[in-house]
Computed example of a mutant assay.
Amino acid sequence: MRITQGTFSFLPDLDDDQIRAQVEYCLNQDWAIGVEYTDDPHPRNTYWEMWCQPMFDLKDPAGVMMELNACRKAFPDSYIKLISFDSTRGFETVRMSFIVQRPKVEPRFLMTRTEGNGRSVHVTLTTQR
């Protein structure tokens, strides 16, 4: 099962040149870039681990790619994503996020529906490896 989260989730995985082009676009918009990773891509897990501090005032995509490659080396079988932040309104707003690495075997999710009183339905989502 392919996890679909982020801006380019329904496209084939981006290669490094395509990732670099997206990073360059974000930097041209004066957005900060962050690198995050996780081994739990559950849809409700919105707080992935930060690899490094968000890269504010960076103008060269090479710096982002260097941090991305260091994260890939440290966590070769984890999900890694890039996030761009826009602070032009005085607070950080996520403008773009996309997965740049996936594990070789992605987990499956099992959805269990339980009917409650009346017409209510409770849904439980669990991860299966």
Rank of each mutant, 00 (worst) to 15 (best):
G6V: 02
E36G: 06
D30I: 05
Q22Y: 13
P41L: 07
M55C: 05
P54L: 00
W51Q: 11
P54D: 06
G34Y: 01
P54T: 04
P43V: 11
P43W: 09
P41W: 06
M55H: 07
Q5M: 10
D57H: 09
T38V: 09
D57L: 07
Y37V: 01
T7C: 12
L27A: 00
N28H: 12
V23H: 03
D16S: 11
D39A: 01
I19M: 09
D16P: 00
D15L: 08
Q29C: 00
Y47H: 10
M55Y: 02
Q18K: 05
F8W: 15
L58F: 06
L14I: 09
D39C: 12
S9W: 01
L14Y: 14
P43E: 01
T7H: 15
S9A: 07
L11Q: 13
C52I: 01
C26Q: 03
I19N: 00
D30P: 02
Q5P: 10
S9I: 05
R44M: 03
A21L: 03
W31R: 09
D30Q: 13
W31D: 02
D57F: 13
P41T: 00
D17C: 03
L11A: 13
N28Q: 09
Y25A: 10
I33G: 02
R20Y: 04
T38E: 08
P43G: 04
D40N: 15
I33P: 05
P12C: 08
R44P: 00
H42G: 12
P54N: 04
D57Q: 12
L14N: 11
Y25N: 11
I33D: 00
D13G: 10
Q29K: 14
F8I: 04
T7V: 01
S9C: 15
G34K: 11
L27K: 01
Q22A: 05
F56W: 14
H42D: 07
G34R: 11
E49W: 12
K59N: 05
Q5I: 12
I33C: 10
Q22I: 00
E49V: 05
N28K: 14
V35A: 14
F10L: 09
Q18Y: 01
Q18P: 10
K59Y: 02
A32T: 02
V35M: 15
K59M: 05
C26R: 02
E24C: 06
N28E: 05
W31N: 14
Q53N: 08
L27W: 03
P12L: 12
D16E: 07
Q22S: 04
L11G: 04
E49M: 13
T38M: 11
E24V: 12
A21F: 01
A21N: 02
L58C: 09
D40L: 13
M55A: 04
I19A: 08
R44E: 08
T46I: 13
T46R: 00
W51M: 07
G6Q: 07
P43N: 04
P54I: 02
T46E: 10
N45C: 09
